[in-house]
Simulated scan of single mutants.
Amino acid sequence: MKIRKHKEGIETEEATKNAFVMPFISTVLGYDVFNPAEVIPEFTADVGTKRGEKIDYAIVHNGQVQVLVEAKKINDPLRIEHASQLFRYFAVTNARIAVLTNGQVYEFYTDLDAPNRMDAKPFLVLDFADIDDTLLPELAKLTKESFDLDSVISAAGELKYIGQLKRILAAQFKEPEDEWVKFLTSRVYEGAITQRVRDQFGPLVAKAARQFLNEQVNDRLKNALGGPDSYVSVSSGSVVQPEQQEPAQVVGAGPAEEAERVVTTEEELEGYRIVRAIVCAEVPAARIAARDTQTYFGVLLDDNNRKPIARLWFNRSKKYLGVFDENKVETRLPITTVEDIYQHADHLRNTVARYLTTARPQAAAAEPVPPAQAAGAW
């Protein structure tokens, strides 16, 4: 991932904007950062006695400023104190969305609590170090091609509280507080909950939480990468599948032995997540499936072999991205890093768009399909 690879070498706010924020606006949201009709850098709007203050970026859609972006240096934690200019500008522009970011974490704000006044808490928090896939469809609504402000605002209230609840739950699962330990202990222990009992159950609650999360992750990986008959190797962390799309032929090896030769790497999973993020503006992320084989990692629409989106040829010294034309003929494109997949985002989106078009009735198929912008991790 580009952020993980380069963030330690970024030492200034300006470098953060150039390395991470501008590519986010361009690659993920789909706006031309060099076109002032779409993105205005150093946007100025005089606020009361404040003159000449600038906001880092104003994103324009249909001739109106719709999104304000304030950037801070990467590795600096985001605090509401960093958003003072966003608060002031929010009240004097048409923007309904404000974004505070350090290049890795993006906090999205609106005015749910009071009209034309930016909320103190974000309704959506996107962290590229730990992407929540459920947020990608909402992010897609802010892209140039799929901009739908009304839908974003209507969903913001629910997103705001669900996001906060999930973060609280994550914190409790990681390091449970006394009240959380007491609450869960009272459901399984019938005696008085003394301090000694709390001390005893604290590690048990933490251990149970970790095991529960591991089981949930295991189930999701099995469903995404191989179905209910696959399993996760505890020693390697890889997903092993008993049946593969196109297993390599191994002389003298049976099906079980062939399956054991398949090792899904973290790099392949990262490539899969990138492809899914790119095309999720075209289809829901749940429709993007993955199948690993001994020779390549396949990405499919609707888990259908006849609808290949991409193949990741990473099990070799030279990496290749396999893409498909209208006749489903594969072309292998050399790439240096996993992030290079983003250079072929249009091709991947067009591939999915073709499958969607052919699946519609003839009358609907005649309608042009607009290219959608990436709405996920980059």
Rank of each mutant, 00 (worst) to 15 (best):
K7G: 00
I10Y: 02
A15Y: 00
K17M: 15
M22W: 01
P23V: 10
G30E: 02
F34T: 08
N35C: 13
N35A: 12
P36Q: 04
E42H: 01
T49N: 13
K50N: 11
H61F: 12
Q64C: 07
A71K: 03
R79T: 14
E81L: 12
H82C: 04
R88G: 10
F90W: 03
T93M: 07
I97V: 15
A98V: 06
F108T: 07
T110P: 06
D111S: 11
R117A: 13
R117C: 13
M118Y: 04
M118K: 08
D119W: 07
K121I: 13
P122S: 11
T134G: 06
L135G: 01
L139F: 03
L142K: 00
F147T: 08
L149I: 12
S151R: 14
V152I: 11
A156N: 03
L165E: 14
A170S: 15
A171G: 04
E177G: 14
L184P: 03
L184S: 02
V188Y: 00
G191N: 04
I193T: 08
I193G: 08
R196G: 10
Q211G: 08
R220C: 13
K222D: 10
L225T: 04
S233A: 10
S233P: 03
V240E: 06
P242F: 04
P242G: 05
Q245W: 08
P247W: 01
V250M: 13
V250D: 05
R261W: 09
Y272S: 12
I274W: 04
I278W: 01
Y296F: 13
V299Y: 02
D303I: 02
N305V: 08
R306V: 07
P308Y: 01
W313T: 02
F314V: 04
S317W: 00
S317K: 12
K319P: 04
D325E: 05
K328G: 00
K328A: 13
E330L: 01
E330R: 03
T336N: 10
T337N: 14
D340P: 05
D340I: 06
H344G: 06
D346V: 11
D346E: 14
L348D: 09
A353T: 06
Y355M: 10
A359L: 03
Q362K: 11
A363K: 02
A365P: 03
P370T: 10
W378Y: 11
